[in-house]
C-alpha cells in the first residue's frame, strides 16, 4: 500500500527546476512546474554517468512528454515514467508525488 511521506514544504521546491530529497535512504529528484500545477519524482541517479545529478538537469518537453535532460551527457528521461528517450531499455524508478496543503509528499512502494 502506498505510504505518503512528507518531504518538504512547497516553497522548498525550485519552480521549473528540480531538487533532491532523501526518502527512506533513496535519492529522489523532485521537479515542479507551477504553471502546469505539475510535480514529478524520479530517482536522482543517472545510469549513464553513474552520478546522483538528475535533480540538477534542465527540464522541458519533447513531443508533449515532460522530460529532464541529464546535466552530464544530456540523455532525456520522461518525468512520468522514468523511461530514457534515447535508450528505451533504460528506465529509472518514478515515484508517486503530490502536494497536499503545501506539503510535498512522496510515496516509495516496497
Amino acid at each position: 500500500m502506498a505510504r505518503w511521506q512528507v518531504v518538504c514544504h512547497v516553497d522548498d521546491l525550485q519552480p521549473d527546476s528540480g531538487v533532491c530529497a532523501l526518502v527512506e535512504g533513496l535519492q529522489v529528484a523532485i521537479f515542479y512546474m507551477p504553471k502546469d500545477k505539475a510535480v514529478y519524482a524520479i530517482n536522482n541517479y543517472d545510469p549513464f554517468s553513474h552520478a546522483n545529478v538528475l535533480s540538477r538537469g534542465i527540464i522541458g518537453d519533447i513531443n508533449g512528454q515532460p522530460v529532464v535532460a541529464s546535466p552530464l551527457y544530456k540523455q532525456h528521461f520522461n518525468l512520468q515514467t522514468g523511461v530514457c528517450l534515447e535508450d528505451e531499455t533504460v528506465t529509472l524508478p518514478a515515484y508517486p508525488v503530490r502536494i497536499e496543503n503545501s506539503s510535498v509528499q512522496v510515496s516509495i512502494t516496497e
Binding site: V7, V19, C20, A21, Q27, N52
Partner: peptide, 9 residues
C-alpha cells in the same frame, strides 16, 4: 545536495 537533509551525497 538534499532539500530535507544536511547529509552529503
Amino acid at each position: 545536495h538534499f532539500i530535507n537533509s544536511e547529509q552529503p551525497d
